[in-house]
């Protein structure tokens, strides 16, 4: 019994140590964002700032066109969430609950696109987007989401497969076409799965750096993720401001995570991906 107790204590110590190590960087970020640059030099390691210097936040916001970046980010997020949810739900339905002979191999193709690294499609996609006149437009990033995404199609298809055939049959009895079944039966039953897709896409777009780097050149169109990188180059030595900006940029993600923790965890463990 005593040995059991000792082992248990050891486990607790190990877990606490690990958790502390994983949490430490975030604590450094938040506490650093509340120090003056003088405090940061004098005492870089202290986690409890002496005197809460909230002024870093307005100062960081003022040094980048925060509202412009934020509204661009939100526009991108809205467009991409609508695009992905719609296009992936359509394809996932076609690949699961519409009975046609092509759906098996087409699903295979969907999965195959997951294995293609972005490097090989990057240049031609850039040429295509430029040819369409979408360079330096938010549509360059939004438009492709209207054309489906393998991970989300996979996730939605798995969910659609669990809808009982009897419910679909009932709809068919009522004379619903596949289109009607999709909107009146499948979509209303799939709100949790659709919410997962919307959430993941929101997070992906919020974090996306490569897209804006590639397609946007006008600072008036930059989203936060890209604008923040510009901020690093310009204010590289003002760590307290950088940390304040990084904290602000992170905060919505942490909030979303805590509000939708279950959705997050389930989404990741069913598909093995992150947003």
């Amino acid at each position: 019994m005593k040995r059991q107790r000792a082992k248990k204590s050891l486990m607790y110590l190990l877990v606490w140590f690990t958790v502390a190590l994983f949490s430490l960087p975030l604590l450094v970020m938040v506490s650093g964002s509340l120090k003056t640059s003088g405090q940061l030099t004098r005492d870089p390691y202290g986690l409890w700032p002496d005197g809460w210097n909230w002024g870093n936040y307005p100062e960081a916001l003022a040094s980048l066109p925060f509202l412009v970046y934020l509204s661009n980010t939100l526009l991108l997020c809205a467009g991409c969430v609508i695009g992905t949810t719609l296009s992936c739900a359509l394809a996932a339905y076609g690949l699961s609950r519409v009975n046609w002979s092509g759906r098996r191999w087409m699903f295979g193709l969907v999965i195959a696109t997951m294995l293609l690294p972005w490097h090989i499609t990057m240049i031609p996609r850039f040429v295509l987007i430029s040819e369409l006149g979408l360079y330096n437009s938010l549509w360059a990033i939004v438009l492709p989401t209207f054309l489906g995404d393998a991970f989300f199609i996979f996730l939605l298809r798995q969910f659609f497969m669990t809808i009982p055939e009897s419910l679909l049959d009932a709809g068919r009895m009522d004379g619903l076409s596949p289109w009607g079944l999709f909107w009146k039966v499948v979509i209303p039953l799939s709100k949790p799965a659709l919410a997962t897709v919307a959430l993941f896409q929101f997070v992906t777009t919020w974090n996306d750096f490569g897209g804006p780097l590639l397609y946007l050149s006008d600072p008036q169109k930059f989203p936060l993720a890209y604008g923040l990188e510009r901020f690093v180059s310009a204010y590289g030595d003002q760590t307290n401001l950088l940390l304040a900006a990084a904290t602000l940029f992170t905060l919505p993600m942490i909030l979303i995570f805590f509000l939708a923790q279950k959705t997050f965890i389930q989404g990741i463990s069913t598909t093995g991906i992150k947003g």
Binding site: T18, V28, A225, M253
Partner: peptide
């Protein structure tokens, strides 16, 4: 333990620079 993976890469990179 999971929380760090919801930190945007851009923010995480700024943080790790420090």
């Amino acid at each position: 333990v999971f929380l760090p993976s919801v930190i945007p890469v851009v923010a995480a990179s700024i943080l790790w620079l420090w």
